[in-house]
């Protein structure tokens, strides 16, 4: 009981995740800055930002639905933290595991996006509503390729459980190499999920101010920011567990180091993507996702279907 609580709240639960999320935000911002020839923030900047934001007054627009407006940040935060418990991190087994948890994780990772949509919609401000509809439009574009990309390795492993998948790839490490297309698709889709350049269309500041979060301030915005930071870590962990299933057998200490390293690599790749690209328009984004990313994911599925028959 006490151990469970410790796991949920402290390690590897909420507290660890928050700190890890903020640390990864720092890594992302620092890399982004260095690649742009800037100095970048000091290591404590994300922490300072969070504390400062949390101390600010929160303003709820008169016309907004106060219950939904307050609920959505909590909802988004809870969903991403929950998803984390089903992902195998430094051992072959996650904290909680059952057959089909892969689907649950992906579902839980969809929830924050829905929370962003509802938050924007219930803000009843023009910019937030446009941001909200864009969030949803974008969701339909990247979610299907992400699903297919993550399901393909599962198909090869013959299980819907993330923990069993890692066990499978632990036994057959070379098979992970077949999933390279899926890995790329997943990276692109995650960039969309995290609403970062080139897919930061829902919060494109030069067009629609703050997008979904235009009306948010203070603690509620801090919570959203935290949810996004944690979402980045959770998504990176998911990709690491599914596509980079190495180094699980070396004990917890080495396992942890390798896990952090994998997350760092994925965060660095995501930072690189947003450095070298310009923001797309929403219709360019959906066209790109349906015409390029989705067929690539389908191809991965097809390859793994054939492979699972052959091997």
């Amino acid at each position: 009981m006490i151990l469970s609580l410790f796991n949920l709240l402290i390690f590897p639960g909420f507290l660890f995740l928050s700190l890890f999320g903020l640390a990864m935000e720092f890594v992302d911002r620092k890399l982004y800055a260095r690649m742009q020839n800037r100095i970048g923030p000091p290591w404590f900047q994300p922490f300072a930002d969070f504390i400062k934001l949390a101390a600010k007054e929160e303003i709820i627009p008169e016309e907004a639905d106060p219950v939904m407006f307050r609920l959505m940040p909590v909802f988004a935060l809870t969903a991403v933290v929950t998803a984390f418990f089903y992902i195998p991190l430094w051992g072959t087994h996650s904290l909680f595991a059952f057959n089909g948890d892969l689907i649950v994780v992906i579902y839980l990772l969809t929830l924050p996006t829905l929370a962003f949509f509802l938050a924007g919609w219930h803000s009843t401000s023009l910019f937030a509503m446009i941001g909200a509809t864009r969030t949803l439009t974008q969701l339909f574009a990247y979610e299907v390729p992400l699903f297919m990309a993550v399901l393909a390795p599962a198909l090869l492993a013959g299980t819907w459980s993330l923990s069993e998948m890692t066990v499978f790839y632990q036994v057959h490490p070379a098979y992970a190499g077949f999933n390279i297309i899926g890995f790329i698709v997943a990276l692109i889709a995650i960039q969309g999920k995290l609403e970062r350049v080139p897919f930061d269309i829902p919060e494109a500041e030069t067009e629609i101010v703050g997008g979904t979060f235009t009306e948010y301030s203070g603690r509620l915005l801090a919570m959203f920011r935290m949810a996004i930071d944690i979402e980045a870590v959770v998504c990176a962990s998911l990709v690491a567990a599914v596509f980079l299933p190495f180094g699980f057998g070396l004990g917890p200490a080495w396992g942890f180091v390798i896990y952090v390293f994998k997350v760092l690599i994925i965060i660095a790749l995501l930072a690189l993507l947003r450095t070298v690209l310009a923001r797309l328009r929403i219709e360019q984004m959906t066209i790109f996702c349906w015409k390029v990313v989705a067929p690539a994911a389908l191809l991965q599925l097809l390859i793994n279907l054939i492979l699972s028959g052959v091997l």
């Binding site: 742009q36 020839n37 350049v197 030069t206 923001r279």
Partner: peptide, 16 residues
């Protein structure tokens, strides 16, 4: 122009 289309890297480089 880079900033308006969300390409901040161009902004940082050209302003440097």
């Amino acid at each position: 122009a880079g900033h308006e289309i969300g390409f901040d890297t161009l902004l940082m480089y050209s302003w440097r």
